[in-house]
Amino acid sequence: MTRKLTFEQAKRLYGQRYTLDHVPNWAFKHHNGRFYAPQYASDREWYENTLFPGEDGHHGFGKDCYSSRATYPLGVWLDKPYRGRAGYVSGDDEGMPLDVREALVMSRAQDDFEFHA
């Protein structure tokens, strides 16, 4: 399938996506005492599971995108708002291989929450 938007264009145009890479302002508001969790592990995962206007299979309206197959890497609901990757990185992480640093970020984020499926 030919994409209508590049990865960078999609990130720029769709600021309401909620991933471990990107936290929109609405994610800091609680809903019935809990917080929504990120829907995708990365912006790239969101992009690969999202259709944009003009693409085959797009079921959205107007300029809306249509995302599917959310993975909810931290669970569906959180007891505290997710702070974004930067909120879980320490200065000691510099120079570590990316996969090790990612594992530390995920571990620290999971320690911060009680998970609700």
Rank of each mutant, 00 (worst) to 15 (best):
H59T: 06
M96Q: 12
R17D: 01
A117S: 02
L20R: 00
K63L: 14
E102A: 01
Y66N: 03
R83M: 14
F113Y: 12
D93T: 05
V105I: 15
Y40A: 03
K80Y: 11
W46E: 01
L78A: 05
T50I: 11
E55R: 12
T6E: 03
L51S: 05
D92W: 12
H116Y: 15
S67M: 06
Y66M: 01
D93S: 04
H116P: 00
M1S: 15
E48H: 07
M96L: 15
P53Y: 07
S42C: 06
N49F: 00
H31D: 05
G15H: 12
F7S: 07
D56F: 09
E48S: 10
P38G: 09
R69K: 13
G91F: 05
K4Y: 08
R17I: 12
R3K: 14
P73H: 04
R108H: 07
K4S: 14
H31G: 00
E8Y: 02
F115A: 01
E94P: 00
D43I: 02
Q39S: 11
A10H: 09
F115P: 00
F113M: 15
H116A: 09
E94K: 11
T6V: 04
T19N: 06
T71V: 02
Y36M: 13
V100K: 09
D64Q: 14
E45L: 13
R17E: 01
Q9M: 12
S107Q: 04
P38T: 06
L13G: 04
F28K: 14
T2V: 13
F115C: 01
Q9A: 13
Y18N: 08
P81V: 07
R17Q: 10
Y88S: 04
Q9H: 13
W77A: 12
Y40L: 06
T71D: 02
Y82A: 03
R12M: 13
P38N: 08
P53D: 12
H22L: 05
T19A: 09
T6N: 04
N49A: 02
K11F: 02
A10K: 07
T6H: 05
D112G: 03
E94N: 09
G57A: 12
G57W: 02
M1T: 15
R34P: 00
H22V: 03
H116D: 11
F7A: 08
Q110I: 11
E55F: 11
Y40R: 02
D79C: 07
